[in-house]
Design a binder for these strands. Structure first.
Lengths: 329, 329
DNA sequence: CTGAAAGCGCTTACAG
DNA sequence: CTGAAAGCGCTTACAG
């Protein structure tokens, strides 16, 4: 009954049953070389008959190549990050690679440990949503061990590793302009951690839009980038800036929290106070009022990452489109 | 510059630099056998000097053992599922195993494909949150290929694979009783997909509590188990059962949607209509009013799974505690 | 297209 | 504690 007691079935067994050579079995399995249709058929029949399972460990060891792509992500607990991770997984899998997903809880130390471990498994490529405080020197040196390293969503300053991220600045710029077009003069940017590169980019977009007019007053309230943070930041904002007309939120989760707080205060989002999110989560269109947000297409992001992997691109910042979606908030 | 052009560094090189035998290096690396303190020191120094990286492929191939545990999850997009996956990852990693996380989009076919692929990587154990419509025969046969298979959260009928899940029935039973204690006579259960085993268990808990009294009227409104579903189910419920006094929700996301809908209708959750969730997500305590929910401890779940792996337990349904948390909703 | 042979980087007895 | 040897299951030229 114990599977460990039985000999494992190898290509040698398959070859014997199929009546061909080990080499032929190997070639058929890899779809390489010239093998006759008859040989292929016999091999496949023998595989079925014997219950043979390909051993990638052995194959990888011998050929010194691996088809494992690791997706290392900072916070699977964030819905956008989870969606991105799943989408990346599907795209990379469609490319014919095997994926392994690992989360680091946005902790640079965990990230270092996990990736050191991954190295022992001879991972081919590494797709990283870097944890806060990731060091460029550490990141750059990864290129020595992996044939391909790509960072996503967050830029690590001074890193030479290719990076794929949405045009944060332009997205928030569009969003802020839409608020200005409503005639708002008192606008706040709420939520998010100022240490993250995506924060800097978004706040830059915010400020750039404001600069184009002269009679605008603006405020910034930081908080953690989740719903609870949004709630806190919105409440601080209302307390300190009662005249605020609209808020640009760091992301949709922050916007959800902000909206909850507004509703609890008897205010109607979109009517009393404008609210704009970032990410355009699936839920956002179903909010009441439907949440205006900056759409970041995870499929486009995933496709761009796949292109880098396929083309073995070793550098560059690759921005994807961020599109403002005007809804009723 | 190309790392493929350089010879890889093996234990042979380490042995040479350290001035010991290959065997000794191997034993030191595994922390096995008796090696002198001096030998250990020399080996570690040599590893640092050479930049040696352990090759687990080769080790696993030779020793016919693997330390890879795959966590296969149906929907990473669900916050509770994501939290559970991350927690499991951390616990299993703490046990000294390497983890790989894979999501199946709740699709039984994807699940089958992914797990077949995993087999080629000689995964040691499989922790599965089964997709809807997972076949018991398929699941049972996995025991042949993996030393350990555990299902979590969802039971597959007629499966002999060990299963870890919260006491859904008891949790909802407690929640429903709390509503009855408020004197409510018109209660609905909203949200969730009736095909899932956890749905059946929760609705059973609901009905069991109601059965104990004679003057209660109840309704059930199904929907997808997310926020949008909660919104829809709540709106249907209000339309068809205006006299409803409280709702038991399939999970917290459904409760969030329900609460949003209530607020939009000018109703106050907890005051006008009671709302109870399930899962007790981190956000729930920060809602306004704080959401009453059934707490399911992901750490306990993860610990139970780890126990099964460590003890190589091959059967049984292992229930973890579900505790009703009374808050203001 | 086949078969024999070498070798990927390890582990594991075993004799010293 | 060491060293030589065999072998895990594959891939990869190479001669036929």
């Amino acid at each position: 009954m114990n599977k460990n007691s039985k000999q494992s079935i190898t290509i040698h067994d398959v070859a014997r049953v199929a009546g061909v050579s080990k080499s032929t079995v190997s070639l058929v399995l890899q779809g390489k070389g010239k093998t006759s249709a008859l040989a292929k058929e016999k091999v496949h029949a023998a595989i079925l008959q014997t219950g043979y399972v390909y051993n990638r460990e052995a194959a990888a060891l011998r050929s010194k190549s691996s088809d494992l792509v690791a997706i290392v992500v900072n916070d699977l607990t964030n819905p956008y990050c989870a969606k991105l991770a799943v989408t990346l997984e599907n795209h990379v899998r469609a490319l014919g690679f095997m994926t392994t997903l690992v989360s680091t809880n946005d902790n640079a130390l965990t990230q270092t440990q996990v990736i050191a471990k991954l190295q022992e498994y001879r991972v081919k490529a590494l797709v990283i949503f870097p944890a806060i405080n990731t060091q460029a020197s550490w990141l750059n040196q990864l290129k020595t061990s992996y044939t391909q390293v790509v960072t996503i969503m967050r830029q690590v300053a001074n890193s030479t590793v290719p990076c794929v991220l949405p045009n944060n600045e332009d997205g928030i710029y569009q969003a802020t302009q839409a608020l200005l077009a409503r005639g708002h003069k008192h606008i706040a940017f709420i939520g998010g951690d100022a240490v993250a590169s995506e924060y800097t980019q978004r706040i830059n977009g915010f400020n750039n839009a404001l600069k184009e007019l002269h009679d605008i007053q603006s405020w910034v309230f930081n908080s953690s980038a989740n719903r609870h943070g949004g709630r806190l930041a919105m409440s601080q904002c209302l307390a300190q800036v009662p005249q605020v007309e609209s808020v640009v939120c760091f992301n949709d989760m922050v916007a959800y929290g902000a909206i909850e707080h507004l509703r609890e205060q008897g205010l109607t989002p979109g009517t009393d106070i404008g609210v704009i999110g970032f990410e355009d989560l699936d839920d956002s269109q179903f909010m009441n009022p439907p949440l205006s947000s900056v759409r970041v297409d995870v499929d486009e992001l995933a496709r761009t990452v796949c292109d880098l992997i396929v083309n073995n691109t070793q550098e560059g910042v690759h921005q994807t489109v961020a599109e403002f979606i005007q809804r009723q908030s």
